[in-house]
Design a protein around this nucleic acid. Structure first.
Length: 434
RNA sequence: GGAGGGGUUCCCGAGUGGUCAAAGGGAUCAGACUGUAAAUCUGACGCGUAAGCUUCGGUGGUUCAAAUCCACCUCCCUCCA
């Protein structure tokens, strides 16, 4: 039964290297072992979708649920209006209340696929902190909640220190009060749901401990916190970005194919750690994969497993199928062997695709139209298109093109309709003639 | 308030009248090698096919010619009060 498993949840987190910090370790261990607990993690609406940075806490909630605890997904309808200053180097622009409200709805839907809402006592719930903050009067808030916070200790928090100390930056009262709001969430969730644990990224440590203190003061209760590590890459670059930007969880913003490819491209030095962070494979299975890879020649199997697992979690089995179908065709298969139906399927599966007017068109222009002629500084220019062609980076339907004067017309297309342009090693674009 | 130093292309950082679209490094992108990995090597790296055009905090000036000289403005740093 789930409760039997809960004594291993913390050690599983440890083996996965998923623990950055935790409060009162002994007490927490005992607390989790002695019953089904309610655990929450918050997600602020700062865009119309979450990105893969939110995946670690989201999956961690699921891990707790699998261990028999009840997850609460908190969507920050209130905190999203304020803006978390933690480790942010500058004050951020406020978003309108209407906009944040629409984002809240989308993020509610998005987070919902990661936890189970129908499993009895440990069924998940989605909550919105706007529900318990919107109606609170300023004076009541200042008297009942604010009184428990010492500004002296708030300004000591590492998360806001640089903003306070660094010249020319500063922090508004609005952002400074963020911590109070998030702390109030924890206290409220304790009261309403008996929630006794909060998890979050390691940047949330200050906010989480704030909530623990407030809950003790307001409700004389001991609650706990655990932070998850910041996901890093071995080469020091920022995790979660690709040439074309942020990797979103929303299929309309990052296609399942692009999402799948992101994980396929994980470096060997990172991939086993990512398997621990982002999949539900047991640590033993992961170790097995690692040792099998180590003793075999050629490509590691880990990237493929990672891509399939994570894509399945975020986009479902159909997403995995579509993404791996495209990937197979483009990277392993024989382009000329694709049937017309398969080519059409590629477009449906999320391979970037552009409709072309009848007639013929210079390849250079097509590279610009499709956005493939992207310069290192993020612009699309004709000159860059030429450079790519001249440096042997462009192929059409599997043929390298080195003539920057080349024209394309339907006569050379597959089935008179399709050109598959490849720029560089990994970027593909499908052209469709009428 | 006084004294001095400084703002250069994505970042760091050279450059003090023409040979400067601007050294070098980093980042980024491409090519080669590989395994859609890493490392390494090669190339590109303001825009333009080119002629040429637009850049060196801002504005105005000196000059055949300025990132480089002058004036004013602005922002930053250090030291002294």
């Amino acid at each position: 039964m789930p409760d039997m498993m809960s004594d291993t949840i913390l050690s599983d987190f440890e083996r996965r290297e998923l623990v950055a910090q935790m409060t009162a370790e002994q007490d927490l261990r005992e607390h989790l072992q002695s019953g089904s607990r309610t655990v929450y993690s918050g997600f602020d609406p700062t865009a119309d979708s979450l990105h893969i940075g939110s995946l670690v806490p989201l999956l961690s909630l699921r891990r707790f649920q699998l261990a028999g605890h009840k997850p609460l997904v908190l969507v920050g309808g209130a905190t999203g209006l304020i803006g978390d200053p933690s480790f942010k180097s500058e004050e951020r622009q406020l978003n309108s209340a209407d906009l944040v409200a629409t984002w809240v709805e989308r993020i509610k839907v998005q987070t919902s696929r990661f936890v189970d809402f129908d499993c009895g006592g440990s069924a998940a719930e989605v909550v919105n902190n706007l529900d318990w903050t919107a109606g609170v009067g300023v004076l009541d808030f200042l008297r009942d909640v604010g009184k428990h916070f010492a500004v002296n200790s708030m300004i000591q928090k590492e998360s806001v220190k640089q903003r306070i100390e660094r010249e020319g930056e500063g922090i508004s009262f609005t952002e400074f009060s963020y911590m109070v709001l998030q702390s109030y969430d924890f206290a409220q969730l304790y009261k309403k749901y008996g929630c006794t644990m909060q998890i979050g990224g390691s940047d949330q440590w200050g906010n989480i401990t704030g909530g623990i203190d407030l809950t003790r003061r307001m409700h004389q209760a001991q609650v706990f916190g655990l932070t998850l590590p910041l996901v890093t890459k071995s080469d020091g670059t920022k995790f979660g970005k690709t040439e074309s930007g942020t990797v979103w969880l929303d299929a309309d913003k990052t296609s399942p194919y692009a999402f799948y490819q992101f994980w396929m491209n994980a470096s060997d030095a990172d991939v086993y750690r990512f398997l621990r962070y982002f999949t539900f494979l047991s640590v033993d299975e992961i170790i097995e994969i690692e040792s099998a890879d180590a003793s075999s020649q050629g490509r590691r199997s880990a990237q493929g497993i990672l891509a399939k697992q994570v894509t399945a979690l975020v986009h479902g089995e159909s997403g995995v199928e579509a993404a791996s179908r495209i990937s197979e065709a483009l990277f392993a298969g024989d382009l000329a062997g694709l049937s017309q139906a398969e080519l059409e399927q590629l477009a449906l599966d999320g391979l970037p695709c552009t409709q072309i007017q009848a007639g013929s068109k210079p390849l250079v222009e097509l590279l610009v139209d499709t956005g493939l002629a992207l310069t290192p500084r993020g612009e699309v220019t004709v000159g860059q298109a030429r450079k790519f062609i001249q440096s042997n980076a462009v192929s059409v339907n599997g043929q390298k093109i080195s003539d920057d004067q080349a024209l394309l017309d339907p006569s050379s297309a597959y089935f008179g309709r399709y050109h598959l342009i490849r720029r560089g090693k990994k970027l593909f674009h499908l052209l469709q003639w009428p």
